[in-house]
């Protein structure tokens, strides 16, 4: 199966957008070769600004460019873009609701060998907590391209979470990404599994295994974490009566939290969150890390069976 990293798709989408729209400008903080903004930089050097290793300045400058009528994409690794520059995002972008697109790569534990300092597991929580912020976590290269285009159509701050490793392609070009709408990848009646990003392809695999055992999973890709598509979730959960969430993020504050908030208030059912369990990561090959921290197909299958059991109690 063809695999492409979401950051690769982002880099290509930027070049496409740059050709179409003179107002697109791109900023990076000395990671252009990794975030893939380098391609835009080569094609449109007058509209590409390397800020050096200075993420606060990266986000602050992007805010000024947006206030000056441009559509800036600011990129760095997720850990620096959101952690290092949180106050700049809060006060200079989200509060004044400026049209800045923060496209952060190397999110999550799949950063791998660089270790915990670079494995951002709290960015969804940080960005989701900010008023005015839209949060997107695309699941593959196709969705990434469409999400990046949608972010330009939308006026306001957007956080786009991208990853380092090559990921399986889930969607074909006919896929219609709608900002703020969940994408149902498989209909099912027994259990709802909601995931985002890297975990979506795992969830589809888990759903197949469950099917072999006679369990029908309803699979939702919640690629827009905010604004949260509560109605798609509730519709599914009213039918299935059990939910599993899966994300490459801390179980605190991310997709699992967003789902829990809605479910506990509007239709309480058995629920289990898969994510990194309130701890830092470590160095290692991405796949081994995913297994060690319980972010894999088997764990999703187990969790689905567990919530099903609780439902039938």
């Amino acid at each position: 199966m063809e695999k492409i990293a979401t950051r690769q798709a982002y880099g290509k989408a930027l070049v496409e957008l740059g050709q179409k729209n003179e107002d697109i400008v791109v900023l990076d903080a000395d990671l252009a070769k990794s975030t893939m903004t380098i391609e835009f930089g080569k094609r449109f050097p007058q509209r590409f600004f390397d800020m050096g290793v200075a993420e606060q300045n990266l986000l602050g400058t992007a805010a000024g460019l947006a206030a000056g009528g441009k559509i800036p994409f600011a990129s760095s690794f997720a850990v620096f873009a959101t952690g290092r520059a949180y106050d700049q995002i809060r006060n200079s972008i989200a509060y004044p609701r400026l049209n800045v697109k923060i496209a952060a790569t190397h999110a999550g534990i799949t950063v791998g060998e660089d270790g915990a300092s670079h494995q951002m597991l709290e960015d969804i929580a940080l960005m989701r907590a900010l008023p005015n912020m839209t949060v997107l976590v695309p699941a593959d290269a196709v969705e990434t391209r469409k999400a990046v285009f949608s972010a330009v159509e939308y006026e306001g701050p957007v956080y786009i979470r991208l990853g380092r490793p090559a990921l399986p392609i889930i969607y074909d070009d006919s896929y219609c990404f709608r900002l703020g709408k969940a994408s149902v990848l498989k209909e099912g009646d027994d259990v709802t599994i909601v995931s985002c990003g890297v975990m979506v392809s795992y969830t589809l695999e888990a759903a197949k295994k469950l099917q072999e055992e006679g369990i029908s999973a309803h699979v939702i890709n919640m690629s827009t974490i905010k604004p949260f598509d509560a109605s798609s979730l509730i519709e599914s959960v009213r039918k299935t009566g059990a939910v599993v969430t899966a994300e490459e993020h801390s179980i605190i504050g991310g997709l699992g939290s967003a789902v829990s908030e809605v479910i506990s208030e509007q239709c309480p059912v058995p629920l289990f969150r898969i994510g990194v369990n309130d701890q830092f990561g470590e160095s290692g090959p991405p796949q081994q890390l995913m297994d060690k921290y319980g972010l894999n197909i088997e764990r999703i299958v187990e969790a689905a069976k567990m919530v099903l059991k609780k439902k039938h109690k």
């Binding site: 602050g60 460019l65 947006a66 206030a67 700049q88 200079s92």
Partner: peptide, 13 residues
């Protein structure tokens, strides 16, 4: 501390 970076962005724009 944030105004100068924002000003840079506006000046570049």
């Amino acid at each position: 501390g944030q105004g100068l970076a924002v000003s840079n962005g506006m000046a570049i724009a």
